[in-house]
């Protein structure tokens, strides 16, 4: 009997290299549009009278965003249940403020903006949120066993559909960490989320250190706003990655009544909010 024995010896001289680098890309230029950041957040235990709405314009993708403030618009919010109207004052820096807003849980509100002869509107309902049940720090949880993370827990009420927006902002960093949450899989449970930063030399990201402070807010939101945020966050974090969905235009709840094709960007939300901050020890 003849034996055939064959051994294949293969050696790689250079390892597998999956590398990333920043490159120049020509991107298309779409129309410039009005952006509405109308976030009426009512912090638990406050009157909620002071509110700000931000208006700006979009820019080409790689342009700096210094001069995008929109001034000269008229901005008001109407309570559709009580009929009360709250007018926001133009601060000439893109912000419009009021100190007389009256938030009512479960009431429906309509935003009305008049800008450059076009009227924009949006409607949203005030939704409640749960208190934080705990905010702690740890090292062993999270993705990395040694890096510091902050853990935030809250109790989801059972048997009702709830949607949340959780936002972490480290005071040392420019960019926040955003979570969109629905209670479909966690209904009625105590839910915990963590924010941990992993060291990344290329992006200059550093782990949390004792002394760092993180601002944390949690909002009760509508299903539509949850869906909007889900796309926003997914696309912000991973647009272009082959294992993420093809990026698409975000559709908010603001419409242009006079010229529907000139759809504004942004969202009008009215939410109950809990806010806290945490300093690592």
């Amino acid at each position: 009997m003849k034996f055939i024995y064959r051994i294949l010896l293969s050696a790689l001289l250079v390892g597998i290299t999956s590398c990333t680098d920043v490159i120049e890309v020509d991107v298309p230029e779409g129309p410039i549009r009005l952006t509405i950041e109308a976030s009426l957040d009512w912090e638990k235990g406050t009157t909620g009278n002071d509110q700000t709405i931000l208006l700006s314009t979009s820019t080409p993708f790689f342009e700096s965003q210094n001069n995008t403030a929109v001034t000269g618009a008229t901005v008001q919010v109407r309570n559709n249940d009580s009929g009360a109207v709250f007018t926001f004052q133009d601060q000439n820096d893109g912000s419009y403020i009021t100190s007389s807003f009256i938030p009512v849980m479960g009431n429906s509100y309509t935003l009305e903006i008049q800008y450059e002869d076009e009227q924009y509107t949006a409607t949203e309902t005030m939704l409640p949120v749960s208190e934080f049940s705990s905010i702690t720090q740890s090292r062993e949880d999270g993705e990395d066993d040694e890096a510091l993370e902050v853990n935030v827990s809250f109790q989801d009420p059972a048997d009702i559909e709830n949607y949340y927006f959780l936002r972490f902002q480290s005071r040392n960093d420019r960019l926040p960490e955003l979570f969109y949450i629905k209670d479909e899989f966690v209904d009625g449970n105590e839910v915990t989320f963590y924010y941990e930063k992993l060291e990344d030399d290329q992006d200059n990201i550093k782990e949390f250190e004792p002394g760092d402070t993180v601002d944390i807010i949690l909002l009760g939101i509508s299903e539509d706003y949850h869906n909007y945020l889900r796309l926003l966050v997914e696309q912000f974090e991973s647009a272009g990655n082959p294992f993420s969905a093809t990026p698409v235009a975000l559709v908010g709840n603001c419409i242009n009544v006079d010229n529907p094709d000139n759809t504004p960007y942004g969202y009008f939300r009215v939410s109950e909010k809990v806010a806290s901050n945490f300093t690592f020890e």
């Binding site: 051994i7 293969s10 790689l12 999956s18 991107v27 790689f62 992006d203 991973s238």
Partner: peptide, 29 residues
């Protein structure tokens, strides 16, 4: 190619992911 904000500067940038650069190999059969 993914598009996002630089974590440090906040400026928008395009990041290319390339999987294989030059990969030499040697095999003995």
């Amino acid at each position: 190619i993914s598009f996002g904000q630089n974590f440090e500067t906040g400026a928008n940038e395009a990041t290319r992911t390339a999987i294989f650069g030059i990969v030499p190999s040697i095999t003995y059969n």
